[in-house]
Amino acid sequence: MKIHTILAAATAAAIATTAIAHEGATGIVLERMKAMSAMREAVKEMTPMMRGQVQYDADAVRAAAQTIESHAGQAMIELFPEDASREKSYAKDALWQDFDRFADLAMQLETQTRGLALAAANGLGGDQGGSGGMMGTSSMMGQDTSAMMGGASGDTLSAEALADMPADAVFEKVSQTCSACHTPYRTKPE
């Protein structure tokens, strides 16, 4: 009996915590907050490995990448229907005004995380210097002024092309896509 009471209290507390964390969001808005939280946790799990702070674990990276992939693409697009309540949401109106671009970014995230799962076994790229990975392909590294001055960035590589790259370089592309979408379409939580 006592155990039941404790369990019930713990469950209630957990539900309450979730509700507080999401500031009373319900329905599809709560669903997408849960999806975003799952992706955030996956990024948080991979980050120390990508930074070389903890032992790299290809299986863990693959699993985390697949978690994000499962919430990206069509699954993400469907969580943002035009007619959904926008109350208690961090999404800006710009997302619906510019829906095609949002959908492109959602699909790009899916492609990139599929690529990351394939690239997980490649491990880290080692010491490639500051901006290499982010400037697109390795041939652009540090040499090509056109990339540095704003030229093509290689954001639209296929999963198969990404599969040949070091995992940390693909991971950086994934995080850039998260940020590229948060920049125009998410308001600040506080």
């Binding site: 955030r40 946790e41 996956a42 990024v43 948080k44 799990e45 980050t47 210097g129 500051g130 901006s131 982010m134 400037m135 540095m148 704003g150 950086e172 995080s175 850039q176 998260c178 940020s179 590229a180 948060h182 920049t183 379409y185 998410r186 600040k188």
Partner: peptide, 28 residues
């Protein structure tokens, strides 16, 4: 470099842009 904050979230707003087109290109 990455736009990733310690809690696993990524920068949005103007800072996302600053990192993506600016500080991610700087040296470590």
């Amino acid at each position: 470099q990455s736009g990733i904050m310690p809690n696993g979230d990524t920068f949005g707003g103007g800072m996302g842009e600053v990192v993506r087109h600016g500080t991610s290109f700087l040296t470590d």
